[in-house]
Simulated scan of single mutants.
Amino acid sequence: MVSVVDAQRTILLSPTGTNVWSGQTTQSLNSAAVTWSLAKELYGKNGPYLIIPLSLVIGMVPTTIQWLIWKRWPKIGPVKVDSILLPIIYMYSAWMTAGVNSTITSSIIVGLISQLWLRKYHPAWYKKYNYILGGALDGGAQVMIFILSFAVFGASGKERPFPPWAGNPAVGNVDYCNGNGALDT
């Protein structure tokens, strides 16, 4: 961590960061600490952000409705109502509002293959190996992030960028987000 902070200090202090390095999480913790120290003024009944604490109650409403539906109809067609976990859906949809979220598509694809296709067509394999598959994918991703951080992205101080190509544009963000310059020629 010391190596990363030393090598990428200016980028980590920048409010925008880059498509590789960002101090966004740390900065958001600092912002949260400041705002919660002013909680009465910001989140109180006359505050501009009253909707934040009210969102806890708002989020409980559909979850309670789902629970009531489950009590009456535990299964609707092939779907078990209690297998839809609304709080987890809320959490992951909130992650999509900030930072680089290009990993969400691949996570959804892997989840659908694992939870729908493998479970339905290969239940014995699913039961025996899916937990190991999940751990292997998580562990492999973390090892690759560690290796790429130091070997390519400059965590040790010297960056060795990949050459530009369709998956790594020379200009703009690798996500090809509209308006970021990657599609400009």
Rank of each mutant, 00 (worst) to 15 (best):
K71C: 04
Y92H: 11
S83M: 15
K80A: 06
K71T: 05
G59C: 08
G77Y: 00
L86D: 00
W67T: 10
S55L: 10
I76N: 00
I76P: 02
K75H: 02
T63V: 13
L56Y: 11
W73G: 03
L54R: 11
T97R: 14
K80L: 07
P62K: 00
T64E: 14
P74I: 00
M60W: 08
V61N: 08
P87V: 04
R72S: 03
W67H: 06
I58H: 06
P62Q: 02
L68A: 05
P62R: 07
K75M: 11
W95P: 07
A98I: 13
I89N: 06
A98M: 12
L68C: 08
T64D: 14
V81I: 04
W73V: 08
L86K: 03
S93N: 12
D82F: 01
I88P: 00
P87L: 03
I76A: 03
Q66I: 08
K75I: 04
M91E: 12
V57T: 13
A94C: 06
I88K: 10
I69K: 03
L85K: 14
L68E: 03
M91H: 10
M60F: 11
P87M: 06
W73K: 06
S93A: 11
I88T: 13
I88W: 07
I65Q: 01
D82R: 02
W95R: 12
A98E: 13
P74Y: 04
M96W: 13
W67K: 10
L56M: 10
W67C: 06
T63H: 11
P78G: 12
L86G: 04
M91F: 14
W67V: 09
W95Y: 11
P87D: 01
G77L: 01
A98T: 14
D82Y: 03
A98D: 13
P62G: 04
S55F: 08
K80Y: 10
W73Y: 12
M91V: 13
P78D: 15
I88D: 12
M60N: 12
P78R: 14
S93C: 08
V61Q: 09
I58M: 05
L68K: 09
Q66K: 05
P78C: 10
A94E: 06
Y90L: 15
I76S: 00
S93R: 07
Y90Q: 10
S93M: 10
T64S: 12
L56Q: 12
M96P: 07
I88G: 11
W73D: 07
